[in-house]
Simulated assay, not measured.
Amino acid sequence: MTTQNTNTADSSWTIFIEILSDEFTAKTGFGVYAHITPVDVDQAYRQYQLRNAPMRLFVREYVKHYA
């Protein structure tokens, strides 16, 4: 059971980074790590987890802050 939860969390993390990088690339022409550090990405993911918002909406709002 723990393995399934871990895989789900890993999948969510991977999807989050892909969406975040795609959004930065679309808005600025450069991927996520050209703008923020890996620590910032981790903090953004934690913020996303605390909010009750769709991932893409959260990422769009987050990127607006940097782009």
Rank of each mutant, 00 (worst) to 15 (best):
F30L: 13
E23R: 14
V32R: 00
T28G: 10
W13Q: 06
N5H: 14
I19H: 06
L50K: 15
R51M: 13
Y45L: 07
A9V: 08
T3M: 09
T25Q: 12
I15G: 00
T14Q: 08
D10I: 01
G29N: 11
A26Q: 13
T28R: 08
R46G: 05
N5C: 07
T3S: 13
N52H: 11
L20E: 01
T37H: 09
A34C: 10
W13P: 01
D22Y: 00
N52F: 05
A26V: 09
Q47Y: 07
A44S: 11
D22E: 11
L57M: 12
T3E: 12
D40C: 06
D40L: 05
I15T: 12
Y33Q: 03
F16G: 02
F30N: 15
G29L: 07
L50V: 05
Q47M: 13
T14H: 02
Y45K: 13
Q43H: 14
R56I: 05
R56C: 03
V32C: 10
T14P: 01
Y33F: 15
R46Y: 06
G29I: 06
T14M: 03
E23Y: 01
F58W: 04
N5E: 13
T37N: 08
A53W: 09
D40Y: 03
T37P: 06
T6I: 15
P54Q: 13
Q43T: 11
R56Q: 12
F58T: 01
I17D: 02
R51Y: 10
A9T: 10
I19T: 15
D22A: 09
W13M: 06
F24N: 00
V39W: 07
F58Q: 02
L57P: 00
S21R: 02
E18C: 04
A53E: 15
N7W: 03
T25N: 08
N52K: 12
E23A: 11
T25E: 12
P54A: 14
W13H: 08
K27T: 09
D42P: 02
I15W: 02
P38E: 14
V39F: 07
N7H: 08
T3P: 01
I15S: 06
M55D: 03
A9D: 07
N7S: 09
A53H: 06
D22F: 00
Q49S: 14
K27F: 09
V41C: 10
K27N: 11
Q4K: 15
Y33R: 08
T28L: 10
L50C: 08
L57N: 11
I36F: 05
I17F: 01
L20T: 01
H35M: 10
T25W: 01
R46D: 14
Q49G: 07
I36H: 04
Q49M: 13
R51W: 06
H35Y: 15
E23N: 10
Q4H: 12
K27C: 09
P38H: 05
W13R: 12
D10W: 01
S11N: 10
I36K: 03
M55K: 08
V32K: 02
P54S: 15
G31Y: 05
E23T: 14
S11P: 02
T28H: 08
D10T: 02
V32I: 14
Q49F: 04
G29Y: 07
N5V: 10
A26N: 14
A53K: 14
I36N: 03
Q47I: 05
S11H: 04
